[in-house]
Simulated scan of single mutants.
Amino acid sequence: MVTDTDTIKALNELLQGEYMAIESFNTFIDRVEEDHIKKSFQDIQKQHRDNIEILSSHIQNMGGKPQENLGMKGKMADMKLNMDLGMKSDAFEIIEKAINGETKGVNMAEKVLRGNLDDKSRDIAGEILKKDRDSIAQLKTLM
């Protein structure tokens, strides 16, 4: 049986991934010089911000508290990303990192979808998964 506590925990995992995505795209936007790539990154980042708003509201409506921070895992991932990119990175490398990050987000969303969710939460997670897959397709067009 699905409990609200289990569902809220799963949705908070997804929420943390959204915060990680925003931080990653802050780094990508800062490092890329090409305006059209920067604009695409900003569009994808906005989509993640929208996902946060939807998830946070749903968690609150369920009586839970959204975990609105990166957490230790997110902070470590952000540090690793900065180290991986180094001082200079070309646009191709940055786009590859963005695709890799979005792919990890899709994997996380798929894991959440396989977990204990009520129908409404499953629909929300599924919509986020679809948007993340669309973002990957958008990033691939930049290559």
Rank of each mutant, 00 (worst) to 15 (best):
G71R: 03
K38D: 00
I54S: 02
M79H: 10
I59L: 01
E53K: 04
G64E: 00
Q60A: 10
G71A: 02
F25L: 09
G71C: 02
E33H: 12
E23H: 09
I37S: 08
M72A: 15
D35G: 11
L81P: 02
E33W: 09
L70A: 06
R31N: 07
V32N: 03
D50P: 01
S40K: 14
I22T: 08
A91Y: 09
F25W: 12
A21Q: 07
S40Y: 08
D35H: 08
I44N: 10
Q60K: 13
N26W: 08
S40T: 15
E23Y: 10
S89M: 05
A21D: 03
M72V: 15
N51C: 12
N82A: 10
F92N: 12
I37G: 01
D90V: 06
N69Q: 12
I29N: 00
Q67G: 00
F28H: 02
I44K: 06
K73P: 03
N82W: 00
A77S: 09
D30C: 06
F25E: 11
Q42L: 14
F28E: 03
H58A: 01
A77N: 07
A91V: 13
M83P: 00
F41Q: 03
I52N: 00
M79S: 15
K65F: 10
G63T: 04
K39S: 15
F28K: 02
M62C: 12
D43L: 09
E53M: 08
D84H: 12
H58T: 00
F41V: 06
E33M: 08
K65A: 08
Q67S: 12
N26S: 05
E53H: 07
E33V: 10
E53D: 14
E93R: 11
R31E: 07
I22Q: 14
I29Y: 02
G86T: 03
K38G: 02
H36M: 08
E34N: 15
I54W: 04
K38R: 14
Q45D: 05
D84S: 07
I44E: 11
V32A: 06
R31K: 14
S56I: 08
N61G: 14
I94V: 09
N82R: 15
K88M: 15
K75H: 10
Q42M: 13
D90L: 02
N69S: 11
V32L: 06
E23M: 13
F41T: 05
N61K: 09
S57F: 09
L85T: 04
K75D: 11
M79L: 14
S57C: 01
F28T: 01
G63M: 06
K39Q: 14
M79N: 10
G74S: 03
E23C: 05
A77V: 05
K46R: 11
M76R: 08
E34A: 09
R49A: 12
K73A: 15
I52G: 00
I54F: 01
P66V: 00
S89F: 01
E53F: 05
L70I: 01
K80P: 01
H48A: 09
K46N: 14
E68L: 12
M72D: 13
E34H: 06
D84Y: 08
F28D: 04
N61E: 11
E68A: 13
E34V: 11
D30W: 06
D78Q: 12
E34P: 03
T27V: 15
I22M: 12
K73I: 09
G71N: 02
D35F: 07
F25P: 07
Q47I: 05
K73Y: 10
I22V: 15
D78M: 12
K80F: 13
M62Q: 11
H58P: 01
K46W: 03
